[in-house]
Amino acid sequence: MTTPLILLPSDNVPSDHLPSNTSAPLRLGPGLRLLSEQQSSTPSPGHVINASRAGLLSTDPKRNAVSILSFPNHRYIPTTNDLVIAQVHHSSAEYFHCMVTPQTPHALLAQLAFEGATKKTRPVLKQGDLVYARVLSIGVSAGAEVELTCVNPATGKAEQGGLGPLTGGMVFDVSTGLAARLTRASSSKAEYEDGVAGLVVLDELGTKLEGIGGFEIAVGRNGKVWVDCSNAGDSAIRATVAIGRCLHAVDESNLSPAEQRKLVSRTLREMEV
């Protein structure tokens, strides 16, 4: 078993830290880029993988995948295939110009990059509206614009997960670290004991709030979480605020699954939900 490895931008990944599975192609996750490909079926010095941001190297032998786990409070850097919650700043003839983070230039979202969109049926979004989108491309040259999409480019269909305009609800700011953990936990549906995921807060909230209509949620890797409790009737606002309080508490403290369950029960009781 290899020891944990922290990489800085431009560091190369040592070959002995790469998954040894040669029956499947090596998958690179966020924070890594391939500088040159190996010429054989076994890792070689020609297989150069470079870190594009600082963080802990994470490997998944089953999926033959490797990625960088960034530090919890790092500034978000757009990465291809990331799901983000973007806010429309203004529109032009063919694009919506969206804010992904306050520190980065506006990202471009084509006005026809929605399922079934035509010039007559495309959504009408105004300044301040929110969209749940996927990072389509980030460009390779300095100053290249980030492009977003709300459909799968290969099929033209919206992917599972509710890509598209987000109406109603409330957005909460969380650290990019928690956003990544929420994404991993929801995709794997498993509780990890290593602290990378280990999140049960959303599952616990879903169980507790099911009786009043539940809630919808969208998690953006850019540190945004959208919550909608519109089906909760008179309790909608209190339930939404309770979910936000739970997320902030988990973000600030390294709570175990048992502590997260206690937090949810206590918060819902205090909010009288």
Rank of each mutant, 00 (worst) to 15 (best):
S256N: 04
L255R: 12
V219A: 07
G162L: 01
A133S: 12
V273I: 15
G168Y: 01
N50K: 15
I217Q: 05
E210G: 09
T80I: 12
H97K: 04
N12W: 10
S40I: 09
A154P: 04
S175L: 13
F96Y: 15
A142Q: 15
G198M: 01
L108Q: 09
T3S: 14
V48R: 15
A93T: 13
S253F: 11
Q111V: 06
T59N: 00
A142T: 14
F114M: 01
F172P: 01
V264N: 00
A113Q: 13
S188E: 14
T121F: 06
G29Q: 00
S256C: 10
A144Y: 02
A117Q: 03
V151L: 10
L83M: 08
I243W: 07
G177M: 06
N21M: 11
P30R: 13
R269T: 13
I77Q: 13
L108H: 10
T121M: 05
R75Y: 08
V201M: 06
A232L: 03
N50A: 10
A258L: 09
Q111M: 15
D234I: 12
S187Y: 07
G213I: 08
I49E: 01
A107H: 04
Y95D: 11
L209E: 07
G220N: 00
P61V: 06
D228M: 08
T101N: 08
S44R: 09
H89A: 14
N64H: 05
A232V: 05
P257S: 02
L69D: 08
L32F: 00
A197V: 08
R63L: 10
D60I: 05
C150A: 11
Y76P: 02
F96G: 02
S91V: 07
L5Y: 06
V171M: 02
T2N: 14
M99W: 11
P153G: 08
N50I: 12
N231R: 15
L182N: 04
D203M: 02
L5C: 04
S67F: 01
A107T: 03
A110Y: 12
D129S: 14
G169H: 09
T176K: 06
R245Y: 11
V200R: 09
I85W: 00
G168T: 04
V174K: 02
G139F: 13
V100Y: 09
D228A: 11
T267G: 04
V135E: 06
L112T: 11
E145D: 12
G220D: 01
A249T: 12
L205N: 02
E191Q: 07
D203A: 10
T42V: 10
P61F: 05
E193F: 09
K126E: 13
V219L: 10
V84S: 04
Q127C: 14
E37I: 07
S67T: 00
A24R: 15
D228Y: 10
P105D: 11
Q39R: 15
N50F: 02
G213Q: 07
V84P: 01
S44Y: 04
S265M: 04
T80E: 15
L26Q: 02
L5A: 03
A236M: 14
A190S: 11
R245C: 10
E147M: 10
L112F: 02
R238V: 05
G177F: 02
K126Y: 11
I243C: 03
